[in-house]
Amino acid sequence: MHALIQGVILGVLTAGVFALMASGQTLIFGIMKVVNLAQGAMVILGAYLSYQLFTSFGLDPFLAIPVTTVIMFALGVAVQWLFLRPLKKDDRSELSLLITFAVALLIEGVMSITWHTTYRSINTGYANSSWSLFGYQITLVRLWAFLLSLAALGLLYLLLNHTRFGRAVRATVQNPESAKLLGIEADRVSALGFGLGAATAAAAGSVYGLLYPFNSGSHYDLISKLLSIVILGGLGSVGGAVLGAVIVSTSSAVVAATISPAWSEMTFFVILIAILLVRPQGIFGTTVRGAL
């Protein structure tokens, strides 16, 4: 029982960072109908950037976030502009899968040349301190990571719901044709949207680097988990991504605590299959638009 509750606590705290990664992923899909297979690689790149800032300048990963998000935002805009914009509309969804995969390989290659393939971790002074609450361990880093992810998600929510740009994004998600008719520039919204997705990946990457050791190949572990989360929640739904992250990361933490860590990575697949059998469009997904 103790292990179970400890697992739930750990799962919920970890869910924050995955919710952040997945919200970027689902946002990109919502705007462009592009499944971004490079999201995992962008997260790891974000982690490396904040690792570099920490080792070279002693900048705390939490404080590095404003820097890394800006860099990654620019990178996201560039990727969209160079590789995704030229695609024709009819085969965009299929080709974009392959293109984003190629981008992931490209990022992986660049990372393994720059930082080699040895595992890195960001060891801050507070990396190992933890609180004890009613006999349960709460690692300080995880708590901060959780709070920070919540804050970033909150910012994303404000951006989407209370700015002109957010309105344009939501209009494009709901109906791209009408959005165009209303004078919203689809290309610009797509580019900024992809940049925003990359920026959330960067923020999540800084946090991820604090929680786990990583190397250039780590994005393979991330991508299947991220994709399960966004399908679970319903592609294109940010709320769904958050809920999906909580479900996936809690259940895998519980399996890790009660059965074996080796099997925890499989948990999300079982959940994914179960969801697909009952509700192929995901929890918050709709059948009205998109590929589903």
Partner: peptide, 17 residues
């Protein structure tokens, strides 16, 4: 049961499993 994008995602997840 899923199509294009989601099918691709489900199958790539299968691969990692």
């Amino acid at each position: 049961r899923t199509r294009t994008d989601v099918f691709a995602i489900v199958t790539i997840t299968l691969l990692f499993v």
